[in-house]
Design a protein around this nucleic acid. Structure first.
Lengths: 189, 189
DNA sequence: AGGTACATGTAACATGTTACATGATTCC
DNA sequence: GGAATCATGTAACATGTTACATGTACCT
């Protein structure tokens, strides 16, 4: 039950059409909550029916025409309620780890290539995050030290914390994949 | 499409009944692939219909009686095929990060308590993993250095790599949560 | 007139979640 | 015989994925 809240957050940051939301779910928001355009359109319909958002009026034909949404007071209230509420961390579901465990039983053919591929992808994502950090948070020192300085808004601190989570996770994967490839036999089984 | 392969792996490690599998999905396997008993029974039915596993014959009543499964050659072949095949890393879906982003828009009430709660959970999980490592991999030095020593089997190395992934991820969360709480304003908004 | 990018959707299916139902076995 | 535990399942629903359908706007 998080997609509607992801959409509400995105629309509060900036009223958008379905396609614009889709683009943002491929970038900033998508870094921690992914969604396809089909999911987004379906959910926009539900949110509108539920009275949490509304489509800005348009004239002329509807199909194929851009349709902008913004958040109604009821939507903001729902998001506030959800944000304050707690939730346990989701159980992990990581196919790569499952593959390793399966390889421990049926053999490791092709495994190193797969690890190498993941390593490249995570390195690229990490570089991407670092570039965003350099661009959007140039003043901060990245390690969470800047509580003294006067001008940093709450929102920025939070957005930076989210980005640091992304950087930390990608850094972990890069390190783990590098280590794991080093301990694996050359091209076995 | 990973649950059937998780089950095949588990059954190859040791033939089991549905409930035994459920228990293992709450422990070792569940650390990287979670599943409820309803999912497991449904999938066992499908795998049996597909001819990948079979139920060991039993006499007398069926309902309420333990039913053991093991893997047929076709199931092992399917798992080998899947293991060798590649898959892109799953997109991240982490409600806690979404909450932070939402809090950046609607206010941070209750957020620190939620972070504290997650911190405690991740610390507990980390301690759990470390205990398992101490018990199951006492010889290894944890940092991936032992390529020289003679007796370590492939399977053990892979299982240890999986466990190190769990430890690394939990360590990351503990650090990130600690840092993030330190940078957040005391009890705001 | 054809191609490409923009833009919104439908339908079918696969997977995951929640609530409930049922029977067997063991211990008191 | 009642409660707890073991054990297998059904049903309804929510969410996510994949394939496809349709229309607009602009450029050549």
């Amino acid at each position: 039950m998080s997609l509607p809240h992801a959409i509400l957050t995105a629309l509060l940051e900036k009223p958008s059409s379905g396609l614009e939301l889709t683009r943002r779910f491929d970038r900033s928001i998508g870094f921690f909550w992914s969604a396809t355009h089909q999911q987004i359109y379906r959910e926009l319909g539900r949110l509108e029916t539920a009275g949490l958002i509304r489509a800005l009026p348009q004239d002329g034909p509807v199909r194929g025409q851009k349709k902008e949404y913004d958040v109604l007071p009821a939507g903001r209230a729902e998001l506030e309620r959800w944000t304050a509420r707690g939730d346990d961390p989701k159980a992990v579901r990581e196919p790569l780890l499952l593959r390793l465990r399966a390889a421990a039983v049926v053999g490791t053919a092709g495994l190193d290539a797969e690890l190498a591929r993941h390593l490249a992808l995570h390195r690229a994502q990490l570089a991407d995050y670092r570039e965003i950090e350099r661009r959007d948070f140039p003043a901060a020192d990245g390690a969470g030290g800047d509580r003294s300085g006067g001008g940093v808004a709450d929102g920025d601190r939070l957005r930076h914390a989210v980005l640091r989570a992304g950087i930390g996770l990608e850094t972990f994967w890069v390190e783990w994949l590098t280590e794991t490839r080093a301990t694996l036999p050359a091209e076995p089984s």
